[in-house]
Design a protein around this nucleic acid. Sequence first.
DNA 1: CATGTCTTGACAACATGATTGATAGGGTTC
DNA 2: GAACCCTATCAATCATGTTGTCAAGACATG
Lengths: 125, 125
Amino acid sequence: MATARRPDRDPTRPVYVISVAATLVSAHPRTLRIYEEEGLVCPARTPSNIRLYSEEDIRRILWIRHLTQDRGVNLAGVRALFELEERLGMRILEALYDEGTRRRDEEQPGESGVPIAQDDDQPHG
Amino acid sequence: MATARRPDRDPTRPVYVISVAATLVSAHPRTLRIYEEEGLVCPARTPSNIRLYSEEDIRRILWIRHLTQDRGVNLAGVRALFELEERLGMRILEALYDEGTRRRDEEQPGESGVPIAQDDDQPHG
DNA sequence: CATGTCTTGACAACATGATTGATAGGGTTC
DNA sequence: GAACCCTATCAATCATGTTGTCAAGACATG
């Protein structure tokens, strides 16, 4: 019945509830709600209004985490960067992530050079 | 003796000492020194180590003021945006400034759509 | 039905950051 | 010599980011 091959792995498909998503990105659920309030992420909702985050949402959040935690950019700066990327219609964030890595010959299968989540012990020590 | 025509108006020519520059951008001299410490601006120096800001420096500072004061971006975000612009080799900041203005048919003579300084009453009330 | 997880909303603690201010000791310019 | 500059430090103020908690309610699954 698989339409393409593995529709379960569609990166846009909403799958994670907020507690799971928070664990994936090593943040507090409260923080993810704030990101949504700030308009930085727009997770889907179930008919009963439950947030469901897709893989793309997770990647977007990981970008926010990278910019805020590693680079010290505040949410207003993240918004400006996202807005810039959207207006220019190109993946400018990638160029920003080539910080210590300079440039690698080939890209990882992670479609857009997003920082990968290494699951920490405690999301919110 | 004018080489081209009016070399005095070369936008890269260092002319303003820090007190004058601070007045031009409506900020405290202390703030301008912080911008320099953060690597956001690099004014020229006289042989006796006195800072001299050029028109381009002023425009750059006005960008910082716009991003920080009007958009709430912190200095780390400003650095990310400048770094991005430098890596991409294009004026992406312009696209960011078209916020409420969308796009105007013609550009003002101000070479790069930089927010103009309207001199306030008190730089640091 | 009971339990657990979700929802929004509010309040607060804590640390960090941005900006301005003041001070000290010394150099530069007029 | 007065007024400006330099570096460096300390501090006050205000805003922000993150986490935490509490409340009252809706929903899903056992």
